[in-house]
């Protein structure tokens, strides 16, 4: 374990930022990033699940038998997802209505299971916490950025605030499904260009 805790945290923000570098968990990335608010809400929910499940998986990594480890991870993840769902219903109902089915679908998000299997099952609690937090924040930033691009171009607003005044003709294509693919593709392209320099 040569890497420091900070390195484990920081790698999630750029070197292994989930949707762009790991190219994992694309379903919510494409589906909920119509607005910045949705993107950040989804990111925050995923971060919570990621951090909690990473901690618990790491704590139990010596107890969980190898043969049923996936089942155990899914139970842990599903529990925290349901916690998020209930809490979100109780305290952020409008956001819950917008994210809808994608909150329960965090259970099958490959990022969460991927980090549990690839990282938390092999590392100590503090490292797993840093990893979960880093990846989670990276995911949130990525969703927020994609949401910002789509909302600004497709709706002329940022976080619900109108940017260009009434004369702006919104580029509706960007808030529809194809716009998500194009937006994600362009962002990947920019990331690769920056990387290759």
């Amino acid at each position: 374990m040569a890497k420091s805790i900070t390195q484990e945290f920081v790698k999630g923000l750029w070197a292994e930022i989930p949707p762009f570098r790991l190219v994992l968990g694309l379903c919510p990335v494409l589906a909920v990033t119509k607005t910045v608010e949705n993107g950040i809400g989804m990111g925050a929910a995923t971060t919570f699940v990621l951090v909690c499940s990473n901690i618990l998986v790491s704590l139990l990594r010596n107890i969980i038998p190898d043969k049923v480890r996936i089942a155990c991870y899914i139970i842990i993840i599903a529990t925290f997802v349901t916690v998020v769902e209930l809490v979100m219903q109780a305290y952020a109902y409008p956001l819950f209505l917008k994210l809808g089915i994608f909150i329960p679908l965090i259970v099958v998000n490959c990022i969460v299971l991927g980090r549990a299997e690839a990282f938390a099952a092999k590392n100590s609690v503090v490292y797993s916490l840093a990893d979960g937090l880093g990846i989670g924040i990276g995911f949130t930033l990525a969703l927020g950025a994609l949401g910002a691009v789509r909302e600004v171009l497709g709706n002329g607003t940022f976080y619900g605030i109108s940017l260009f005044g009434p004369s702006f003709e919104p580029f509706k294509f960007m808030v529809e499904a194809p716009g998500a693919f194009v937006g994600l593709g362009l962002m990947l392209c920019v990331m690769n260009m920056l990387e290759s320099k």
Binding site: I64, P65, K67, V68, C72
Partner: peptide, 10 residues
């Protein structure tokens, strides 16, 4: 062990 761990977890 598998049964016990899964039961406790659930």
């Amino acid at each position: 062990k598998m049964v016990v761990v899964l039961t406790i977890l659930t």
